[in-house]
Computed example of a mutant assay.
Amino acid sequence: MRRKFRDGRFLTTEKISPLKEKTPEGYLLCRDVPISRVGSFEYSAAEVGLPNIGHAVQVWRPEEQIFNPETIASFEAKPVVIGHARFADPDNWREIAVGTTQNVRRGEGDKSDFLLADLLLTDRKAIEAVESGDLKEVSCG
């Protein structure tokens, strides 16, 4: 194992895949994770604050909303949790956080419609779930 700095942000010792690396402490760094995108999203009516109308609701997210500096900043250094049962807040984050978001940015090239982040997973069970393939998707809730 050789230690190296990547982009001056992280010290990693083991490259698991082009997008996943281990830190000396055993944390898992997942790079270039799409956390949102430009386009249409499907939600239940309740998820967007509407009364139950019996079908899904389409919500359009335009480029100027997704890549607004305030939107990007709102994701930086936020806790990563598994599932949507509870959102992290100052009262519960110690119980439910499994890592943090970092380096939130607009993608480039064929990923230019995506908002990307690096996720530093610090919880053993979350790391194992990602490494085993049991956990493969991300949602910003």
Score class of each variant (00 low, 15 high):
Asn92Val: 13
Ala45Val: 10
Lys15Trp: 05
Leu28Thr: 02
Gln58Val: 15
Trp60Thr: 13
Ile66Asn: 02
Thr101Glu: 01
Asp113Thr: 10
Ile53Glu: 06
Ala85Tyr: 11
Asp134Pro: 01
Val59Asn: 02
Arg3Trp: 12
Gly26Phe: 12
Asp32Trp: 07
Ala73Asp: 04
Ala77Tyr: 12
Val33Lys: 03
Arg31Val: 01
Asp110Tyr: 13
Leu115Arg: 09
Asp110Leu: 15
Gly54Ala: 04
Leu116Asp: 05
Ile72Trp: 01
Val33Cys: 13
Val57Gly: 07
Leu11Thr: 10
Ile66His: 06
Glu137Ser: 14
Lys4Asn: 08
Val104Asp: 00
Ile96Tyr: 06
Lys22Asn: 11
Asp113Leu: 01
Ile127Gln: 05
Gly141Ala: 14
Phe67Trp: 05
Val33Asn: 02
Val104Lys: 01
Pro69Cys: 03
Ala85Arg: 09
Gly8Thr: 04
Ser36Glu: 06
Ala97Phe: 03
Ala129Lys: 06
His55Tyr: 10
Ile66Gln: 06
Glu63Ile: 06
Glu108Leu: 14
Asp134Leu: 14
Asp134Thr: 11
Pro24Trp: 11
Gly49Thr: 06
Thr71Phe: 05
Thr101Lys: 02
Leu29Ala: 06
Arg3Cys: 06
Asp113Ile: 05
Ser74Ala: 13
Pro34Ile: 03
Gly109Ala: 12
Ala45Thr: 03
Val57Ala: 11
Ser132Ile: 06
Ser44Thr: 15
Ile66Val: 15
Tyr43Asn: 04
Ser132Gly: 11
Lys22Pro: 00
Phe67Asn: 01
Val130Pro: 01
Asp89Phe: 10
Ile35Asp: 03
Glu21Ala: 12
Phe67Glu: 04
Glu47Asp: 11
Val59Pro: 09
Asn52Arg: 14
Tyr27Phe: 15
Ala46Ile: 00
Glu42Arg: 14
Lys4Ser: 14
Leu135Pro: 00
Gln102His: 13
Ala73Val: 03
